[in-house]
Design a protein around this nucleic acid. Structure first.
Lengths: 124, 124
DNA sequence: GAAAGTGGTTTCCTTAAGGATACCATTCAC
DNA sequence: GTGAATGGTATCCTTAAGGAAACCACTTTC
């Protein structure tokens, strides 16, 4: 099968545009992969939180997973970790400015999720 | 520790707002989970494609994974699968209208990924 | 009739993600 | 001194995700 047959059967597409899109998407997903990172960033969008507060807010996450995910997010400069020398030591996690650039992604995901729940409640 | 102490130490937050956000995000992620679904939807955003075309476009995916992911996306009404009775049988995959509602999520992810690549190239 | 392309399925295997549980040091209240 | 809260770490285990390779049926081309 040669190029022209291929081009006749299916609409021509800019393959570079296409693979650049995939690459960019993969770059993003590499950092956001897993079950917990996006939810964590999502709640930190409301303001800083302490470790146990996060754990309470994000139902079902274990201490181990939370500390692992927080470490990775910190490595990627999406959040900061601040130790306060209070009575029992407390640690605050907060989105960096860079982390805040994810707000649009998260809010799109949020509104799609809301609408999707509607859809499956009614339609299906 | 009682409510008032909690409220003094950390900024009051609307906990319902917060957990509703997490719920919605999880609803979305449940459907989009895994390494391949978002890239698949991403390329189908450019127009319909056949099985082997998809496999060529999405580098690294195996036939098994591709057919599995396509099946799941079809179950969730995000894509349609159309068998054409051509010489060797061909099958076209296409975003449904519903699948197209993910376009905003995908494009946000795309542009964040692009910008992130810039950031780590320069900064780090 | 052999090769190559269509769209897959099946089997087997490895790895990574995630969960359960226990534990640690510290401090405060009782 | 007991219990609860702070923020974790260490260990062990299960499950799910994903990959490699072979295979199938069909059709066209050479």
């Amino acid at each position: 099968m040669n190029e022209s047959v291929q081009a006749k059967t299916f609409p021509p597409r800019n393959s570079k545009e296409c693979s650049s899109r995939i690459l960019a998407i993969r770059d993003a997903l590499d950092i956001l992969s897993g079950k917990w990172k996006i939810p964590i960033i999502g709640v930190l969008g409301f303001g800083k939180l302490r470790f146990k507060e996060l754990q309470r807010e994000i139902q079902g996450i274990t201490g181990k997973m939370l500390s692992k995910e927080l470490r990775e997010l910190e490595l990627n400069k999406l959040i900061t970790r601040t130790v306060k020398d209070t009575k029992p030591v407390t640690v605050e996690y907060e989105l960096t400015e860079y982390g805040q650039t994810l707000e649009k992604v998260i809010s799109e995901l949020h509104s799609w999720g809301l609408q999707h729940r509607q859809t499956i409640m009614n339609g299906e």
